[in-house]
């Protein structure tokens, strides 16, 4: 298994009126070629920001405060803009959540699909359009040639997401970041899109980082999972193991809040309280206010993400108690 991308202690700061706020704190994970890694968490936990930091697409108010993102052993965060642009497409690609706004409304889709080939491979207009037809065909858009000159608003939501994926995988990237790629879609269409991503992953030996808040999607699609809370990774490991025996109370809480078939008639369980404000994180463990296991130690000592077994890690002082209990 070859390592496709290594993220090491990545931190992102956001400038707010009240000062700098650390939105992503020391996030580390590794993805392998042909495998999928799920970055799981509630909205606002910093998972999208992590993806945008990796892709170099942070907005004007956010910036990388530290860490490394290694592709093929090279830290892309240290590259100059020109070399980084060379990697955008063939090295690293990203799929966004809302395909309607992610496609440029004023250009035909053929032009947008041809753009990666025009930029990176300097293909002629005609040759790039041929490539675009192939791509549309590959992601399952019927009658691709006749729809080259159609505009994004003339496609359905699912078709638009397919176009966006086609654009991202055009240059066969080593790593594909998919930021909630199916949240805006109907359930049946969601399944089709996930299937397409899985096919492309095996076909192109691509590493997939799947950013999602949906535990079912993570369980079905990913090989590994990293659970994020308040800007930091709290637990990592193989999906099956983590979901079977979580070693962080937050992961446990998430799993408990999923209704199962046997729960009919009982009250839905949820995690008490709300995530803390990033600008006003409590001392010690960020989760302690909502944690059933919290002690005084949790208020003074921030638990580091520490190995708990082969391929697994947790950021909880009491992971053993959780595993035993």
């Amino acid at each position: 298994m070859t390592v496709a991308m290594e993220v090491e202690r990545l931190s992102v700061d956001v400038r707010t009126p009240a000062g700098r706020v650390r939105a992503v704190r020391d996030v580390s994970f590794t993805v392998h070629s042909g495998q999928a890694m799920a970055l799981l968490g509630e909205s606002g936990c910093g998972k999208s920001m992590t993806a945008q930091a990796i892709a170099g697409l942070l907005g004007p108010v956010a910036e990388v405060a530290g860490g490394a993102v290694r592709l093929d052993g090279v830290d892309v965060l240290g590259l100059d803009p020109a070399s980084r642009r060379k990697l955008a497409g063939p090295g690293l690609a990203i799929v966004f959540q809302d395909a309607l706004t992610a496609l440029n409304p004023v250009y035909p889709v053929g032009t947008q699909l041809a753009e990666p080939f025009r930029i990176h491979e300097k293909l002629s207009r005609r040759a790039a359009r041929e490539k675009a037809v192939e791509l549309m065909d590959r992601v399952g858009i019927p009658e691709p040639r006749s729809r080259l000159n159609a505009y994004p608003h003339q496609f359905s939501g699912g078709m638009r997401q397919r176009l966006l994926i086609a654009m991202a995988v055009a240059l066969r990237p080593a790593v594909l970041l998919a930021d909630e790629p199916t949240t805006a879609l109907d359930v049946t269409v969601q399944a089709q899109i996930m299937e397409l991503l899985a096919e492309l992953r095996t076909e192109q030996r691509m590493a997939l980082v799947l950013i999602t808040h949906d535990l079912a999607v993570a369980a079905e699609q990913a090989d590994h999972v990293a659970v994020m809370y308040a800007g930091a990774v709290v637990e990592t490991g193989p999906v099956a193991e983590v979901f079977r025996a979580p070693r962080h109370p937050y992961t446990r809480g998430l799993l408990d809040s999923v209704p199962a078939a046997g729960d009919r008639g009982t009250r839905l369980r949820s995690i008490d309280g709300a995530p803390p404000e990033l600008a006003d994180l409590p001392s010690g463990c960020a989760f302690r206010a909502r944690c059933p296991l919290a002690t005084e130690r949790c208020a003074t000592e921030r638990p580091p993400l520490a190995e708990t077994g082969p391929g697994r890690a947790s950021a909880c002082h009491y992971w053993k108690e959780l595993a035993d209990g």
Binding site: A88, L103, N104
Partner: peptide, 22 residues
Amino acid sequence: SAPYVKVARSKGAGEARVVFGH
């Protein structure tokens, strides 16, 4: 600040192409 601008950047488009093209 629209998403399609981020998408253009993620395709490796230069800043001139992003600003004046997209």
